[in-house]
Design a binder for these strands. Sequence first.
DNA 1: TATGAATGAGGATTCATTCAT
DNA 2: CATGAATGAATCCTCATTCAT
Lengths: 213, 213, 213, 213
Amino acid sequence: MALTTEQRVRRAAVKLFATKGFHGTGIRDLAQSAKISSASLYHYMGTKEDLLVGIMRECLDRLLLAARQTLETVDDPAGALSALVTLHVMAHAAQPDETRVVDHEVGALSRSARRDIVALRDEYEAIWADTIAAGVAAGVFDAPDPAVTRLALLEMCTGVARWYSPRGPLPLDRLAARYAQLALRMLDCPASPGAGAAERAREVAARVWRTRP
Amino acid sequence: MALTTEQRVRRAAVKLFATKGFHGTGIRDLAQSAKISSASLYHYMGTKEDLLVGIMRECLDRLLLAARQTLETVDDPAGALSALVTLHVMAHAAQPDETRVVDHEVGALSRSARRDIVALRDEYEAIWADTIAAGVAAGVFDAPDPAVTRLALLEMCTGVARWYSPRGPLPLDRLAARYAQLALRMLDCPASPGAGAAERAREVAARVWRTRP
Amino acid sequence: MALTTEQRVRRAAVKLFATKGFHGTGIRDLAQSAKISSASLYHYMGTKEDLLVGIMRECLDRLLLAARQTLETVDDPAGALSALVTLHVMAHAAQPDETRVVDHEVGALSRSARRDIVALRDEYEAIWADTIAAGVAAGVFDAPDPAVTRLALLEMCTGVARWYSPRGPLPLDRLAARYAQLALRMLDCPASPGAGAAERAREVAARVWRTRP
Amino acid sequence: MALTTEQRVRRAAVKLFATKGFHGTGIRDLAQSAKISSASLYHYMGTKEDLLVGIMRECLDRLLLAARQTLETVDDPAGALSALVTLHVMAHAAQPDETRVVDHEVGALSRSARRDIVALRDEYEAIWADTIAAGVAAGVFDAPDPAVTRLALLEMCTGVARWYSPRGPLPLDRLAARYAQLALRMLDCPASPGAGAAERAREVAARVWRTRP
DNA sequence: TATGAATGAGGATTCATTCAT
DNA sequence: CATGAATGAATCCTCATTCAT
């Protein structure tokens, strides 16, 4: 089915913001990319910033939703962390442009918009913090500085969006599995998590980002 | 001692490019920040892009230099990797603005400048690749997909520039040690590296970035 | 009874043109104010300028009509001038927005429209000129420079639209009477005009602008 | 002597704002009129609104200054009012563009700027109010509704800017004298004021607006 | 009758850069 | 060495208007 003009605009914005940055992307670039006039653009968006905020919010909303849905059915910390990593990596590999925008353009937001977006991001990171803390409390994770470990994990996984290509040699699920393994090693967690957790994460990812299950 | 005007310009640029992005930073911002008129700016730089290239090149040059100097005296793979991580983390924590610019603004470069900068970056990453390969060959590292592991390591360490604050609770050397530990865990490397490697890295860092040894 | 859409448009235009000026009022402002889409607006008006012309013409037509009807039954110059002042003041107090538009936005008209509108205005002012001339000829007015006196009178009376508020302390008929007095003083006219003239003016005003008689 | 670019800009703005209105005047019109590029315009002004505010403030400042200087040496109410009228009329005839801008474009100001400008205008009008009140108290003026009389007087005199032309038949000082006479008649003031007051007003006007004395 | 979609022209303002002084 | 003056091109966004539905 054909795309709505609004969708075309959104996609053009995502691609351009990811590639050239928010400030590096002109309204004319956007218009040309969406195949409409720059005046028409304003039927489908408010400000250029509104467009940015919309992209960021949707991306973070999905990430939050996916994380919550996944953790609902996972109990053990190793499984939970494994699932979070799987989700995060799949999201960043499946939507590298969206996630790059979220990660790189927070500084381009106005004060009030930034507050909102950062709040969402913090909410998401809190899930990771809780999961790590639970594993440490349960004695299955070793993390002398849990905050540092959390940030190291997140940056490592987020980085996928900066280099992963679907045309590369590594299938997505294998990549995700590799990252889950790395993450558990970082926490010195010997137990392989039940396969269910990662499985569950892949299902949710398939639903939320239409990745191949 | 007072700063040269050229240094003031350079610093202003680093700070602004890191904070607001290359395209988000105007020549007037730069001038104001360097306490100089925008016309005078052009006595101390070529183009705005030249300034950017200069910043990036210096940053990468130092990183390369530091990595090479350090590895000169380190032989074992665990020690080498540990040293690379230490250096990289210290560089990114000590110069978060410079390194953020390097990491975020490659896309703002013109084709030819980008080629140069990316070449430098590749050169640097090749050192990591070699180190990892050596460890795998020696049987002390486990890395089923070495390229993935390398990228995961680099993104993890580079991420430090996005969150580390010298006013935080963690002293820099402790942070670096923690990251080295994480890295070795990721490679499933049991052996603690000789303390000499990290020591050597700290010395080099002190010289190159004036971090406290 | 409910207002026609056309009336809503007209009123919105009058209010906005008076408040923000013709050039300061956007087609979208108009649409929003008339609770209609900006495209629908074009069913009820021609151009934005047509709307302006319509407002001006109606306002001036009424003024002319009222002046002529009033003077039909008034003979003495003092009475005539008194009636003109009464009418003018009541019109400008009762319809401050319309009259402000007429007075302020002539410069926004295209050449041909301006010619028409200015012709109407001149026609109206000619009535004043004639009335003053008649009084001077009859020896009841003293006006060394009749044109100056006419302009002074008109500007004085027109100014009412710029400050009068129906919520102020002064009832409209009292205001009009005060202005009539001022006008006669300016002409050094001792005779109080017959009460009939002002009475007649108030009746006409009541019919033309629905002021309370 | 040749005019500064800044002066050229100011004059162009005054002329255009008076003729086509603030919103009707484009930045390009201004630039063309001042014979510079539209970008260069911004070396000599802040915003378009700043330009407007500057014009208004200077105009009102001069009016206030002139009024105060004049009244310093005038004591009797008739003389004072006569002087105020003379000044006001001369100012509006000598600077019709500036004063038209002040009178017509207050609505184009942003909230805060409007507050400032209206405060100045109120200050000026207070001088008139005081003068009228003094005359009434002294028994030389008859003004049943002093506020109404003040507004009628001001509107009458201000109107001069809307029609007076230096190429017309009436010399400026004669016009001013005529208006002073009209004003005193409006207040039913029999006494001719001492010739000194109007003389003084003309001197001040000559200094402030370079009118011919 | 009513409107969402569409646009070329233009709105004010800022851009990076040059150059004469 | 330093800068005020200058500008063409570009910035984001709004303008009045049309038209197919």
